[in-house]
Design a protein around this nucleic acid. Structure first.
Lengths: 371, 371
DNA sequence: CTTTCCGATGATAGCGCTAACATGCCATCC
DNA sequence: GGATGGCATGTTAGCGCTATCATCGGAAAG
């Protein structure tokens, strides 16, 4: 049943004798009595060597079956596969990565899991990478970009083959670490003239300006905002205000809320605006989640949306088209960002050239019922 | 300025000579000319040995400064820290993990990132673990539990120190792998009489039954459901129906939708129920997201909630209290599940005994405006 | 003053894997 | 028929780190 291997090259199969010094070693009395002296450090788990012994080949051949099967004949593969199944061997990627300097690990740093925006980028990134045999490791920076460097070092200590970052503002030390690691880097969710390596994002400045244009064009004049404290949201907010000024308008008031944003913050944000005595015709929110809260608060007060007050969101999250009334927002192709990041990384890692190192995926205003 | 180390024990400091065979090695001519002959495989990055040389100590001492500083005197630590900063050394956890069989990596498998329920468990788990110096690695199984085993093997090949699973239904092979890995395991989000190792969850059967009791008690009689196809949702659904039967009632209709659930599916689910000619008094949804969609669809049709139709959700996601009308639902302390999982793992990993290997964290009905 | 012990540090030998080169076999070529 | 080359496989030597035990100097004990 078991495919017995011929003794290749007439040499008796002998391996795993790693104990004695590399010079002339006096063989153990029986020669075949190659008793693997249980090292004090042995972990006891099945190793590639165990599989090799069972299959009657050398360890490197097992390694090849797993990593470069095209180098091995069909029946060797068969014998090795059988041995792997029989032993329940699970490769040790720590050892493999250490030896080859390739870990098949790609890290992505996002601010939080609590924001569906980033998740929608990560999911396709993960799909793309795992299809190519890479594993994605997520790092959560928490929004304050303070400890990004520590997180990065923790991640780099696992020697990922590449890394995906959210945002483009990184400390000098962070850039330094990344450069020193000499691995492909993709920054996402924003644009900059000075990317570390590769980049896929869109202009938050333009978003703010275009939203201002859109709302102004629809005839709204009394503007307010509920805006998250995160960096990119603040960029949108400022360019929104700047664009209004260009039209001789201004923003009545802006309520700032912490990140990640919640529906509750949206409700309380509108409540605060109204409590301050403002009666905005339209509220621009830095996320659809906030917009949803504003919508709920408006309804609970009997305000009709958009007639009494219009609401504009950002991101076009999956629910935006299905709230009542449906949410006008800014569509960002988050999945495309993730896919693109995955593709350029895979290209780099397989040695293919990457033509466009910087990609602006743009955005579009989605006019629905709420504004 | 630099704290020069005395030559301990009068021996000249000599290390990193790893090239020649272990037997008698003829020293390079000048003795001090210990030129590190660039190996063909050298990765070029800063190693612990480089730091050691700069600090004037042995590599193992640097290792101790990083991992067990209590074994090292204050000024040695100081010298090593300085050398680390100067060289920009980033430890290689592949090598460290390989040597010590401890990776400081903990893996968690969840079905999807698209469901806020699981995220809310993962976030506190992550916080808890990273505070203890562990890193969390997420694995996404996708809902069909088909390839869980492959994912698990990919994860185990990185030799995590422990693993967190979602759900309790695992294939025989999966259990086998886990047992063979000999690491702590926590199953979450469900209960079972036969956990692999440790467990923290709640009874989905009881949820279904109690929701039936609650809604029946409020006087509703015409029941319908919109229910995700996932395993645990189906358990809730069946026990909901069983409990209704016990009261001589029945469920008019159940619309099943794929996972992860979206607001859209909720809207379409209610639309389908109504199109089929049902006029339920209350709709029990397998997630708050679906419930939110049902709410929106009801509003868009001018149905008053809960007067014309009541809606019940599940999970008590962060928005549930802030929709309009606010959502009656089943509260599950997802964060506590994550914290608990983290705590028992950390206890195990630090050798402390875990008294309660199985924990039922329970749930509670939250009566708000919608039902 | 010697012995004992302890705390700080070092030398050695792997952890399990793969890069790089070596080897043997066979088919092909002149 | 020997040289040539290509292919499948094997041997050797690390990858960078830590477990383990050895060692050393000095404090405590006798």
């Amino acid at each position: 049943m078991v495919c017995r291997r011929r003794p290749l090259h007439g040499k008796p199969f002998r391996n795993m004798a790693r104990s004695s010094s590399s010079g002339s070693d006096k063989p153990a009395s029986g020669d075949t009595g190659d008793v693997r002296r249980a090292s004090t450090r042995s972990t006891g788990s099945v190793t590639l060597g165990d599989v090799a012994k069972l299959a009657g080949v050398s360890p490197i051949t097992v390694s090849r079956v797993l990593n470069r099967p095209e180098m091995v004949t069909a029946d060797t593969i068969e014998a090795v596969r059988r041995a792997i199944a029989e032993t329940g061997y699970v490769p040790n990627l720590l050892a493999g990565g250490l030896a080859s300097s390739r870990t098949k690990l790609i890290a992505a740093i996002i601010p939080t899991l609590g924001n569906a925006m980033f998740i929608d980028t990560i999911q396709p990134l993960n799909d793309c990478l795992s299809a190519a045999g890479y594993q994605l490791m997520l790092g959560l920076s928490g929004f304050p970009e303070l400890c990004e460097e520590d997180l990065l070092k923790a991640i780099l200590s696992r020697r990922p083959d590449a890394i995906v970052l959210t945002g483009v503002n990184h400390s000098a030390e962070t850039r330094q670490c990344l450069l020193a690691a000499k691995i492909p880097v993709v920054e996402t969710w924003d644009l900059t003239a000075t990317p570390i390596d590769m980049l896929v994002g869109f202009s938050h400045e333009k978003v703010g300006a275009e939203v201002a244009n859109y709302l102004f064009g629809k005839g709204y004049r009394r503007f307010a905002q509920v805006c998250a404290e995160d960096e990119r949201a603040q960029i949108r907010r400022r360019s929104f205000e700047a664009a209004l000024r260009d039209k001789g308008q201004s923003c009545l008031s802006t309520v700032c809320v912490p990140t990640p944003t919640t529906v509750r913050m949206g409700r309380e944000g509108l409540a605060q605006l109204l409590a301050e005595g403002h009666r905005p015709e339209v509220v621009f929110c830095s996320s659809d989640v906030l917009a949803h809260g504003v919508l709920a608060e408006a309804q609970s007060r009997g305000l009709r949306v958009p007639d009494d007050m219009a609401v504009m969101g950002f991101a076009d999250l999956d629910f935006a088209a299905y709230t009542f009334p449906s949410l006008s927002t800014v569509h960002v192709d988050r999945a495309a960002m993730g896919r693109h990041a995955g593709e350029v990384l895979l290209a780099r890692l397989s040695g293919r050239p990457v033509d466009k190192k910087m990609v602006d995926i743009g955005f579009s205003i989605v006019a629905r019922a709420s504004a």
